[in-house]
Structures are given as structure tokens and as C-alpha cells.
Computed example of a mutant assay.
Amino acid sequence: MAQRRGLSGRAPRPGRRRGEVVFTARAAFRAEPGRVFEVLTDWPRQSAWVPATVVQRRGGAPGRPGERFAGVSRLGPFVLDDEMVVVSSTPPAPGREGRVRVRKVGAVLGGVVDLVVRPDGPGRARVEWTERILVRPRALALLVDLGGPVPALLGRAAFGAVLRAARPELEGRR
């Protein structure tokens, strides 16, 4: 079977689909896991931490499967409407991590987001934010593939910065 190649002549990275970017950002917080989970999954709150982006609720019960929201990012004349829907949500409880899975359902970005909040000792939590983004327009997917590891490195750095920006609110220092 011939290997798929794009206009660049490159095959997708092993284990990845054409135009797919996968990264994980991690951070630890001095806060109860329940609070961290509650704040991070109050999607419109993220508008304060994500540069040039406003997160809007678009339907469904907040924090429940079926909730719809979008991150609308603007950079000059360019607008990206990153539409998402909550697929599953389990808040943390004593002895149990919290997990939420979000599916990206927009015209430009598809994929899934997995957010895990783990207890990390008394009054402490660890966050693992993994995105598996699928860039849908063929031309943009080819650009992503040409970028090699750079899009994933940028994604991890950007979401690490988002988690750092959220720290004061997550730790109740705001």
C-alpha cells in the first residue's frame, strides 16, 4: 500500500493524520482539585486568560455533556470560531481525578480536548490539558504538516501560558 503524501511530498508524522497537531500542557496548583476543575470548565472565564479570544457559551447546560461553546479569536481582520461541545464531564471527588472531554466541531478545527485534574496532596492539584487538533482545510493541513514539530511545540507553550495566566484565579489570589 502506498503511503499518503501531500503537495509537500511529506507523509504525515507517524501515528498522526494529515493536519493533526497533538500537545499536552501540564501545571500544578495550590488549590483543591474541585476548585481547579470548576474554574477551568467555566468556559467563558477563559476569555481572561487566552489572548485575543472571547469564549462564548452557545447552548446546553453549563458543565454538562452537550454544552456548546466557542473560542472566538481575532487577530486583525482574521477571525477563528473554534466551536466545541462537551462530550463527557466527571468532576474530581476524594480519591478520584476529574476529567472532561470536549470535541472540536468547527469548520476549521476538529479533534478532541482532554482535561484531567488530579489531586496532588492536601490542597493541591495537577492539571494535564491535551489537545488533539485536526486542521480541516486541506491547504492549512499541509502548512501544519510542513511545520513538523513546531505547531505542537507552539500549542504546548501557548496552553502552558494560559494555565499560568489562570493561576491567580485558580489559587484564589484574585
Results as ranks from 00 to 15, higher is better:
residue 52 A to K: 05
residue 70 A to T: 07
residue 98 G to C: 06
residue 52 A to Y: 07
residue 84 M to G: 10
residue 14 P to I: 06
residue 14 P to K: 06
residue 35 R to G: 03
residue 171 E to I: 14
residue 24 T to R: 07
residue 164 R to S: 06
residue 25 A to Y: 04
residue 35 R to Y: 01
residue 51 P to T: 01
residue 169 E to N: 08
residue 87 V to N: 00
residue 90 T to R: 06
residue 25 A to R: 05
residue 72 V to Q: 14
residue 21 V to G: 00
residue 106 G to F: 06
residue 16 R to E: 08
residue 13 R to G: 13
residue 138 R to L: 15
residue 137 P to W: 02
residue 42 D to M: 01
residue 28 A to M: 09
residue 63 G to E: 03
residue 64 R to Y: 09
residue 24 T to E: 06
residue 4 R to V: 14
residue 19 G to P: 13
residue 142 L to K: 02
residue 75 L to F: 00
residue 33 P to G: 00
residue 77 P to E: 07
residue 165 A to L: 12
residue 134 L to M: 14
residue 155 G to P: 07
residue 12 P to Q: 03
residue 144 V to L: 08
residue 115 L to N: 09
residue 11 A to K: 14
residue 37 F to M: 01
residue 156 R to Y: 07
residue 88 S to G: 11
residue 15 G to K: 15
residue 59 G to F: 08
residue 8 S to T: 07
residue 61 A to V: 13
residue 43 W to A: 14
residue 72 V to S: 13
residue 59 G to C: 08
residue 55 V to E: 00
residue 124 R to C: 01
residue 148 G to S: 09
residue 148 G to M: 13
residue 60 G to C: 05
residue 110 G to W: 12
residue 38 E to W: 09
residue 10 R to G: 07
residue 57 R to Q: 11
residue 5 R to W: 07
residue 23 F to L: 15
residue 32 E to W: 00
residue 158 A to I: 10
residue 92 P to G: 10
residue 111 G to T: 02
residue 153 L to I: 06
residue 111 G to A: 02
residue 43 W to I: 13
residue 164 R to Y: 10
residue 133 I to K: 08
residue 78 F to Y: 02
residue 123 G to D: 13
residue 105 V to G: 13
residue 138 R to I: 13
residue 141 A to V: 02
residue 12 P to C: 05
residue 150 V to F: 05
residue 167 R to V: 13
residue 126 R to Q: 06
residue 117 V to D: 06
residue 152 A to P: 05
residue 2 A to V: 14
residue 21 V to Q: 00
residue 106 G to S: 11
residue 3 Q to G: 12
residue 155 G to I: 13
residue 122 P to L: 15
residue 5 R to F: 05
residue 112 V to K: 12
residue 35 R to K: 04
residue 120 D to S: 09
residue 146 L to F: 10
residue 33 P to W: 01
residue 29 F to I: 02
residue 14 P to L: 05
residue 76 G to E: 07
residue 3 Q to D: 14
residue 131 E to P: 03
residue 82 D to F: 15
residue 33 P to R: 01
residue 121 G to P: 05
residue 122 P to Y: 15
residue 116 V to A: 11
residue 165 A to Y: 15
residue 90 T to H: 10
residue 142 L to W: 06
residue 39 V to T: 00
residue 47 S to I: 05
residue 71 G to L: 04
residue 74 R to F: 04
residue 2 A to C: 13
residue 164 R to T: 06
